Simulated scan of single mutants.
Amino acid sequence: MTRSRRRVLHAVAAAALSTLALGAAAQDAWPSKPIRIVVPYAAGGSTDQLARAIQKPMQDFLKQPVVVDNKAGAGGTIGTDQVAKAAPDGYTIVFGNSGPNAIVPLMRKIPYDPLKDLRPISTVAITPMILAVPADTPARTLKEFIALARQQDWNFGSVGNGSLSHLTGEHFNALAGLKLTHVPYAGGAPMMTAFGGGQLQAAFVTGLDGASMLQAGKVKYLAVATPQRTNTVPGLPAIAEEVPGFRSVAWFGVLAPAGVPDAIATKLHAAVEYAVTRPEVQKMFAERNIEARASKPEELAKTIRDEMAQWGEVVKRSNVKMD
C-alpha cells in the first residue's frame, strides 16, 4: 500500500471516529431544546388529562420545557402518524393508547405501521374498563343487570365507533349472550352527558370518563373488566366472575419514532418513570380509578401485540367497521 493511500485511509477512519464521537456527545447532551408530546385527541379528554399530569414532572427531570400538542382526528391516527414520521431525535413523542396503536389498524388502513414505525417507551397508566349504568337502574349487581338486559331492548354507549369502549361492549354482548344496541358518541364527555339525560342503559368507561357523573350520583358502577377484582376500583366484582374469560383493560403510554437512538430512549423512559412515581401524579390517578404504572419498553410492545390479537377476534366476530 502506498504512503498516500495510507494517509487517505487514516483520514477516513479519523473522520468516522470523529462523527461517532460527535453523535455520542449529542446524545449525551440530549435534550438541549423543548420536547413535544403529541396527544392525538382533543384537549380536555382522558388521554389529554393524563398527558398533562406527567408534563411538569418530565420537564423537571429533563431540565427542558415539555409541551403538550393536541393533534386530534381519525381515531387518534393523525397525531400518531405525525410522530411516526417525525425525526427520530427524541424531541417529538406521542402520548398513545390502545386506539391508534392496536385497535384502529384492525378496522381500516392507516398511514403507519404501529409495530414498525413507533418505538414503545413506557406505559404511564393502566385502568380497567368499568361497566357503568344510570343510578336509577333497578339492577344492583352484574347478575341482575344481565338478567334484566335479556328481557329489555337496552343499549350501550361508547366514545366512538371502533373505540375500545365499543369493542368492549360488543365483546360483552357475545360472551354474556346479550343484544345491547351500540350507540356511539364523539368522545367521553357527550357519552356521559347522555347518561345524565337518560339516553343510555349502560356503557364501558374508564375512571376518568365516569368520575364526574359518579360523584354527582348520576351513574353507578357494577363491575370491572380486569380478570380478577382490583384495588384500582375497590369494592367491585370482576365481570369475569359472571362472564368467564371477559377482560378489557385500557393503557396509556409514551411512544417515539422507531429510529430513536437507544441512549435517548433510555432517558425518555427514565423521565416517564420519574413522572409516574411522583406522589401528586399517583394521587390524581388514584382519585380517578387509574393505576399509575411505568413499564419496560418490551412490556408495552407485548401489550400492543396481545391487544391486536384479542380485539382482532372481536372485530371479526362482530363485523365492526370504521368509516
Rank of each mutant, 00 (worst) to 15 (best):
M1H: 13
T2W: 11
S4W: 14
A13G: 10
L20V: 07
L20H: 14
G23V: 13
A24M: 10
A26F: 09
D28V: 09
W30F: 12
W30N: 04
T47C: 15
D48Q: 07
D60W: 04
F61A: 02
L62Q: 03
K63G: 05
Q64P: 00
V67P: 06
V68R: 11
N70P: 07
G75S: 13
G76K: 12
T77G: 03
T77V: 03
T80V: 08
I103Y: 06
L106P: 10
M107R: 13
R108C: 02
Y112T: 01
I126F: 15
M129D: 12
D136S: 09
P138A: 07
K143Q: 06
L148D: 13
Q152D: 09
S165L: 06
E170P: 00
E170N: 11
H171K: 15
A174D: 07
A176M: 10
T181Q: 15
A189S: 15
A189Y: 11
M192W: 10
F195A: 01
F204Y: 11
F204G: 00
T206W: 06
L208V: 01
L208F: 15
D209Q: 14
K218A: 10
V224P: 08
R229M: 05
R229D: 04
N231E: 13
P234C: 07
A238C: 13
A238H: 11
I239S: 03
A240K: 07
E241C: 01
E242F: 06
V243C: 09
V254F: 03
I264P: 12
L268F: 02
A275W: 01
V276R: 02
V276Q: 03
A286N: 06
A286T: 04
T303Q: 08
M308W: 06
M308R: 15
W311M: 09
K316I: 00
V320E: 08
